[in-house]
Every structure is written in C-alpha cells, then in structure tokens.
Design a protein around this nucleic acid. Structure first.
Lengths: 145, 145
DNA sequence: TAAACTAATTATAATGATTACAATGAAGTA
DNA sequence: TACTTCATTGTAATCATTATAATTAGTTTA
C-alpha cells in the first residue's frame, strides 16, 4: 500500500474539515490497498473483523464523503451495486462481460471528443466516462475448452 | 415517426421468434417516436391511457426482450432508473449534470481506444460506452441570471 | 482538564427500481 | 377445435441505498 497516497488522502480530508475516525481511516486504507474496485458491501464485510460494530450505513456515508472530496470515483452499473475506485492518475476501465472483472488501462484523456461534443450540442463540458467491455483472458480460456 | 424503423424492428422480432403483441407494438412505437430516452416507468405511464390493464412488469419484460434482440440499449446510472434508447446509427450521449437531459451527438467510433485497451489488457473487446457530462444551454442560462 | 458543541456512528426502518412467481389469457399449430 | 406455447397481469419479494433518531466520539473553548 502506498503510504504517500494514504497521507495525501488524510490531508485532503483535514483540509475539507472532515474528521478522521478509525472507520474512515480503515475504509480509506482498504480502498488504497485493494485495487479490486470493491462494492460498499465488500468493504463492509472486509472490515467486519476489525470493526465488529460498524454499520453498513457508515460505509455508505463515508464513501459519499470521500466522493464529494474527490478522493474516490463511483462506478455505477444499473441495478447492480456501485463500485468504488480510489482516484490516482487518469485511467479508464475495461470490464469482462462474463465475470465482471474490472481492469485499469491507461489512455490519454479524450479531450478532442469533449470539444466536439460541446461544439455540437452547446453544452459546457465537465467530464466524461468511458468504459470498454469484452472478455478477459481467463474467461476466454474457459470458453475455448 | 419512422415507419421504416418500426417495420425493421418488427421484422427483427419475427426473425427471432418473438410474438408481436399489441403491447410490444405500442412500446416499440413509443421508443422510436420519442427521442427522450424514457425510463420504464415513463413508458408505462405514457401508454396507460391506451392500455389501462397493462402491467409495469410487461414493460420491463419487453424492454428486456428488445434489448436481447438488440433493438434497444439500456443506459444505466447507479440507483436511478435505467433509460432506454432505440438503436439507430452510432451516436454517443452528453448528459446535463443539472437537469439530467440526455442529448445525442455523433462521433466516429473509438476503435483506436478499443484496440489499445485490448493490447494492454489481453481482453477480447466487444464494445464500449462513452458519455460526456456537462451543463446544457438551458441550465447555463439559468445559472447566469 | 472539563464542559459544551458539533459531527459521526449505529441500528433500523423506509424507499424505490426491478424481478420472481403463479394464475390467466391469447397466439400459433396440428 | 383442442393443444401447446408464450405473453400478460397482479402482486409479492428482493436488494441496494438512504433517511431517521438515538447514542457516541471528536473538537473546541473556558
């Protein structure tokens, strides 16, 4: 786990006047160390042994706080649970249609697309979302057999 | 409304062995004529006067059928309702952060990004999803005043 | 340090979109 | 016409997420 990332995140919280509680510390630590894009429930279950009395509402509340501060991004997929991604450098996601695995890949931002969309629609553009879908190597191998 | 699109859609259903019921006809017609990316509930409410006894489950069931046949795309946004988009030529969406309006814009497909993602991750790529977010002209004007 | 104030946590109930289920109805086929 | 299959209906169930109210813990100030 990157201690630097954790320290920066805690500083960001302080700057925003957000108290640092043991639960928040643990959730942040988990988000930084696990690169698995966990759901709220996965975080809750993972921290259950360390915080037996923690409520699932606490996880949701704090994920919202972290998102508002800009520390994490929420990845939403219809009726399935949201997944949460600690914000580092710019990257996009590729998602396996079979097993749901999410893998990061680096690619320059699509500023040109943003510019064009803005020009064609008259919107002021803030951001964009890009995801690629396909079959991961593991699932491809299974299918072959 | 494009009669050609409706005819093609009905043909596609027949080819796939899907019966064409009055409800399905009406839902399809609504999806083609309205370019508002409606939710299941909006479709349900709009057809209520013509089909007083139609169940909301029928709308959901048939949207799933249409999606499986490839006639429509489901646009998902976390815990909010899914929106449904009749598939025509390639286009992406730009969405207003303030009011949620969805506007189509045309842009060449991002095959290069798909290729790069595939190369970097070893995935077989099937598709991608791109959305741009910003503020629509109407909301921009409101903010100025 | 102790009191006072504010924010966070907890447990639980409520919400709301979507799906599952069983019964009824309609379409296609022999 | 009878049979089989699929679609629709109404309702109950599911499940992620949020709201609420009470309790607890941090922070600030005297």
């Amino acid at each position: 786990m990157s201690e630097v990332q954790l320290k920066d995140a805690l500083d960001a919280l302080k700057t925003n006047g957000v108290r640092i509680t043991p639960q928040r510390h643990a959730i942040l630590e988990y988000l930084i160390s696990s690169h698995l894009h966990p759901t709220a429930d996965e975080i809750y279950k993972s921290l259950e042994s360390d915080f037996p009395s923690m409520s699932v509402a606490t996880v949701y509340n704090n994920l919202r706080v972290f998102r508002n501060v800009g520390l994490i991004k929420e990845l939403t997929y219809g009726d399935a649970s949201s997944r949460f991604d600690f914000v580092t450098h710019d990257h996009y996601h590729i998602i396996c249609d079979e097993c749901g695995t999410i893998v990061d890949f680096h690619h320059p931002g699509l500023e040109e697309v943003e510019r064009l969309a803005s020009y064609m629609t008259g919107f002021q553009v803030n951001s964009h979302r890009l995801e690629v879908y396909g079959t991961c190597p593991a699932c491809s191998n299974v299918n072959v057999q």
